[in-house]
Design a protein around this nucleic acid. Sequence first.
DNA 1: TGATAACATGTAAATATTTACATGATTTAA
DNA 2: TTAAATCATGTAAATATTTACATGTTATCA
Lengths: 182, 182
Amino acid sequence: MAKKNTLKYVILGLLRQHDLTGYDIKKLFSCEIGDFWNSKHSQIYPELKKLEEEHLITSRMEISGKKLEKTYYMIKSAGIDALDKWLSDPLDEIQPTRDDFTLKLYFIDHRHDQRIKNLFSEEILRHQKKFDYLSARMGELFSSRENQEQNFGHYLILKKAILRENTQLKWLKDEYRSLKNN
Amino acid sequence: MAKKNTLKYVILGLLRQHDLTGYDIKKLFSCEIGDFWNSKHSQIYPELKKLEEEHLITSRMEISGKKLEKTYYMIKSAGIDALDKWLSDPLDEIQPTRDDFTLKLYFIDHRHDQRIKNLFSEEILRHQKKFDYLSARMGELFSSRENQEQNFGHYLILKKAILRENTQLKWLKDEYRSLKNN
DNA sequence: TGATAACATGTAAATATTTACATGATTTAA
DNA sequence: TTAAATCATGTAAATATTTACATGTTATCA
């Protein structure tokens, strides 16, 4: 089996929604999309050129201000076909999380090792931040029923991520409390 | 910042628990460790040699049966130091999940697109399988309080993974039901 | 006893991803 | 008005990861 080249489909998916520059795509990864995908600009720009060579997308140049050149990419019908094909492919095996909190915790054996408490306290902070961010985005984007219905996948993934963070935070705080009381 | 080289610390962490061959390490990734880490043997063997060159681990040869050579690796004190250092480093930013169910769902806009139901049905299957596996492992490994106390990190990450799968499955099934009823 | 699965260890090549190097334009706020 | 932040786009080099190629052993079961 060929390596997955997921970024390709992420780009096609985003371009199906709107024409975008490489920079726009990069910025999207710092919103809630960043919960499930990220790529650096040094990977995005070459991938866009590759997709254009494959005739899945095309580009147009726009001048912004006096001379700033922005390259907008647009999806072509072959790109939509490739995206739809991918969407219908069966799901892979579940991938490992590669989460560093989990990884580190696994290697600490003793109940009373101070490092467990340290890990929990850090983990609570970073997930609280994430939960707050995702909740705010939910409020911004999906207060109205119409918005929910019209970007239903987007709505569902946000809902799922918020539930996950909420559950995890509750667990982390519970365990942290019981670690401190023993 | 240097690239993370997480496999290095995973190997050190595992070798702190027991002496292991490369093959043993590979097999561990197909147990519950696989929930948060995996590497192929083609990455493990070279990494072991690299760690030996760095004097973080050493090896001994054992003959199994008539002539099957097995190379067991053992952690050295410099390896333990490196591991402990890593365990105390602050956590990174939370990494994107790269989960293909989420990714695909995000790109489907319409509430009634049949592909949403297909995705949910596939996702429920693979997570049910995972939940069953993790629950079985919990039973095998941590029925007794002593086992829980003596591999506390291991116990906690299993507990966390099971809670995650359980919550997620419930959500998936709820949403799936409501998708079918509308 | 012969096939098959699992044990066991490696290297090579391709792809994916990150970090570092590079450059210039525009907006915003002090 | 100038400094800083952000916009905008790229390439090069290093590292990480996967896939494919390669080989031989041992245990199990038919």
